[in-house]
């Protein structure tokens, strides 16, 4: 049973956002296992542990204390062990600069946090059901920012 689960990790310093995130997956009733970390340092400590179960999809907030989402992204992309993790940027702002930089660093998708719970559920279910293997093949700049 456990092997069928889609492992999902969120790193976000905002407690409310972590709550919305877990609530959304709870209501979606998909076979997912969601873990959250409150900053980049905790996240990387977990990922770098040799026995760690690596997530299928990693959601990264950009603006975090101690270690930002961008730093985590760089570290993950520099490590072969994490090659199969799909990375979704999950941020409040969607400035051209942030979108450009994360795209260049190899993130798979950019999600601007919705301001409606219904929309949030829709976005998350879209991301989880995407076949990332297929998606990365045709990766381009226009599809990077997730539009609903």
């Amino acid at each position: 049973m456990a092997t069928d689960l889609t492992h999902i990790i969120l790193a976000d310093d905002d407690e409310d956002d972590r709550l919305f995130f877990t609530d959304a997956f709870e209501e979606l009733k998909m076979s997912t296992a969601v873990t959250t970390y409150k900053d980049g340092v905790y996240l990387m400590d977990y990922l770098n542990h040799p026995d760690a179960t690596l997530p299928h999809i990693l959601f990264l907030d950009l603006n975090m204390p101690r270690k930002s989402g961008m730093e985590c992204l760089k570290e993950i992309k520099a490590n072969k062990r994490f090659d199969h993790i799909a990375i979704a940027i999950y941020s409040t702002s969607a400035s051209d600069e942030d979108i450009e930089n994360t795209f260049v660093q190899g993130a798979n998708i950019y999600i601007k946090k919705p301001s409606d719970f219904g929309k949030l559920k829709k976005v998350l279910s879209n991301v989880v059901t995407t076949n990332w293997q297929y998606h990365t093949n045709g990766l381009n700049r226009d599809q990077f920012l997730l539009k609903l």
């Binding site: 409310d16 956002d17 919305f20 609530d23 409040t92 946090k113 919705p114 301001s115 409606d116 719970f117 219904g118 949030l120």
Partner: peptide, 9 residues
């Protein structure tokens, strides 16, 4: 955004 999300909830 949080006000709106909580409102929608």
């Amino acid at each position: 955004r949080k006000i709106q999300t909580f409102l929608s909830r």
